[in-house]
């Protein structure tokens, strides 16, 4: 319901802003901006980007069009963005998946230097869950079991599985990754006892936890889950492991600096809007407002770290 009001409000703001644009022709942006989204309409990335874009429209005073350029595991839209005219009218939404993970696994014609970084908007949450009536009631129980024997866990793929790999690497546990196609299937595999644990995100895990069939043992993201404030993060439980994955905005590298500054400012302010938090929450994200440099640094660190983890897990391309 809230969301509808945002959209209506945005429409109104755009209408109001239009005449003033004609008055001062020198102002940029002077026409609509397109954001390429690497995943399909209705998914978590798409909806979050739409929510931020709706806010940014107010500051920029031009309509923002969302184009879902799906394909290549999130790389197709980045390939298109890297080749787009660098005039600030074509931007991209970017997460770790396309920028920091896929380049280690697929042969892509872009690298981190192909883009200019505008701002960070949100952080994904992750958690480790087990069957509620199973033998493990704390993260320490699960950890001890994985020290003694092989423990299977379900996840969709990087970065969801990388936290468990990191535990294996640092502490000699034997968590064994079983890939599943969707988060809900990964969670259901735990409920059915087909695997012993799962490393997934809140939207799929929360219904299972609230119905009493699954237990959340730890948050593996840097922050705790809002719904379960008593469940500590891995780091708080004494394990030096965290999954950091961010969502932000980028542009082709050669975009003029003044336009980058305008966009960066608008998107950062949009991410600060209070209405955004509720929209993000539904998809298991929390706001993470960052300026361009901070976002770029986080992505570059992620690129290096994920590369190392993927190579060790044997998932990187040779």
């Amino acid at each position: 319901m809230k969301r509808r009001h945002i959209l209506l409000a945005t429409g109104g703001a755009t209408l109001l802003a239009a005449p003033s644009l004609h008055a001062q022709g020198a102002r940029w942006p002077d026409r609509e901006i397109t954001i390429l989204v690497p995943f399909g309409a209705g998914g978590s990335t798409d909806v979050s980007v739409r929510a931020v874009a709706a806010e940014a429209e107010k500051t920029l005073g031009v309509p923002i069009q969302i184009v879902n350029r799906v394909g290549g595991q999130g790389t197709a839209s980045l390939i298109q963005l890297a080749q787009a005219r660098p005039d600030g009218h074509t931007l991209g939404s970017a997460a770790m998946s396309g920028l920091a993970i896929a380049p280690h696994m697929l042969d892509v014609p872009y690298n981190l230097d192909s883009f200019a970084y505008l701002s960070g908007a949100a952080r994904f949450l992750y958690g480790i869950g087990v069957k509620a009536d199973g033998p493990y009631s704390t993260i320490q129980d699960l950890f001890n079991a994985a020290k003694a024997r092989r423990i299977t866990f379900s996840a969709t793929g990087p970065p969801n599985n990388l936290g468990m790999f990191e535990l294996n690497r640092k502490y000699g546990t034997r968590f064994h990754f079983i890939p599943f196609q969707s988060g809900a299937e990964a969670v259901t595999a735990v409920l059915g006892g087909h695997v012993e644990a799962t490393s997934q995100t809140p939207p799929e895990m929360i219904p299972a936890i609230q119905s009493g069939r699954m237990k959340l043992l730890a948050a593996s993201s840097p922050a705790r889950w809002k719904e379960f404030p008593d469940v500590a993060t891995l780091r708080e439980s004494g394990f030096d492991v965290t999954i950091e994955s961010l969502l932000g905005f980028i542009a082709p590298r050669a975009t003029p600096a003044d336009r980058l500054a305008t966009l960066s400012d608008a998107f950062r302010r949009a991410a600060e809007a209070p209405a955004l938090e509720a929209a993000l929450e539904r998809f298991g994200m929390v706001p993470a407002v960052m300026d361009g440099q901070t976002f770029e640094r986080a992505i570059r660190e992620g690129h290096a770290r994920f590369g190392e983890q993927l190579r060790e897990a044997g998932l990187a391309r040779r």
Partner: peptide, 23 residues
């Protein structure tokens, strides 16, 4: 919350967008 195919996956997305948590 398990989509059986591409279409139900989109329906799932639509449910989540509207704050409906299947489960």
């Amino acid at each position: 919350g398990i989509p059986a195919n591409a279409v139900t996956a989109l329906l799932l997305g639509a449910l989540l967008v509207h704050g409906v948590q299947p489960g």
